[in-house]
């Protein structure tokens, strides 16, 4: 299996106490990888490091097996990017983007760009600032896709959008990876989006990867028991990954569901959602 991105021993320090890494991560091509974690966990720092918007302090990043330091320009021909809050000056018209990008990317495809605009119902003669937030995001995505990139890197592409627009965008992403040659790395805190489309989940907290697995493994492997204090005390401590004590009940995170379901056959063990998992992993206590 080829890797679209290979990150080795990456460390990025800030003047504040925040530090990303040291982390090692491979992103296989042909997959949709979801990056989750709370605000300030390091998602954007990781994405910006991968894009060389930030300069890393240690470690190495390879994209398509190319060294970033030597072949940056070549690599960037093949990457499409949607950043959180960073795009063309909004005084430009939508069609200006086509004209500018034509001179930037060797593979820029005007027809494809206008097809996306059509699909997304975006008026090419409007100024970017006249577009609604959802439209603007769609325009950014259309722009990121129109030079036939092999890798899409998206920072919070669906935040602030209504469910209908989000669904449209997720469909576009799924179509993009359908031929196995295309890869998407996206960060989001709308974890339910990832439950639909992500193949693999990377969970970051305080600058470290605390969980990295396929979505199916995570969804099958983890479970949650909501119970009262009496029941809670009957659970063997070694079976509790994390727990949260609420006012009236306990939420207990468990691993290895096949085994747990047999062991605690009398209890109702719910399937985990990524949101629950995130909350329990971050806020939950160890026993």
């Amino acid at each position: 299996m080829n890797n679209a991105i290979e990150i080795k021993n990456l460390v990025k320090k800030y003047e504040t106490s925040f530090k990303l890494g040291e982390l090692t991560l491979n992103i296989p091509s042909g997959y949709i990888i979801g990056l989750i974690g709370e605000n300030g966990a390091g998602k954007t720092t990781l994405i910006k490091s991968i894009l060389n918007i930030l300069h890393i302090d240690r470690g190495s990043i390879k994209i398509f097996d190319k060294d970033y330091k030597k072949e940056e320009s070549l690599i960037k021909e093949d990457i499409g990017v949607v950043l959180d809050n960073s795009f063309f000056p909004e005084i430009l018209l939508v069609k200006d983007i086509d004209s500018v990008m034509k001179s930037i990317y060797k593979q820029w495809d005007t027809e494809l760009f206008y097809n996306y605009l059509n699909d997304f119902d975006i008026d090419k003669d409007k100024q970017i600032k006249a577009l609604s937030e959802g439209m603007r995001k769609k325009l950014e995505i259309a722009t990121a896709l129109s030079h036939h990139p092999k890798l899409l890197i998206l920072d919070e592409p669906t935040s602030g959008l209504d469910p209908v627009v989000r669904q449209d965008i997720l469909n576009v992403f799924q179509k993009f990876v359908s031929d196995d040659k295309h890869t998407i790395l996206l960060s989001t805190h709308i974890t339910s989006d990832l439950e639909h489309i992500a193949d693999k989940i990377v969970f970051i907290d305080e600058g470290q990867i605390i969980l990295e697995d396929t979505r199916d493994n995570i969804m099958d492997n983890f479970g949650i028991i909501k119970c009262d204090e009496k029941t809670f005390k009957n659970i063997e401590p070694s079976d509790i990954v994390k727990f949260i004590k609420n006012k009236y009940d306990y939420e207990v995170l468990m691993k290895d569901m096949a085994k747990m379901k047999k062991k605690y056959a009398n209890y109702i063990i719910d399937k985990i959602t990524l949101e629950n998992l995130m909350i329990l992993m971050i806020k939950g206590e160890n026993i």
Binding site: K48, L51, N52, I53, E72, S73, L74, K76, E77, I79, V81, L83, N85, S86, F87, F88, P89, E90, I91, I104, Y105, K106
Partner: peptide
């Protein structure tokens, strides 16, 4: 004014992601 418009929409970060940005 071109610098101001760039800065207002934080164009620089996006520009860095372009080839030879």
């Amino acid at each position: 004014s071109t610098f101001s418009y760039d800065e207002y929409n934080k164009f620089d970060a996006f520009a860095v992601t372009l080839p030879n940005g």
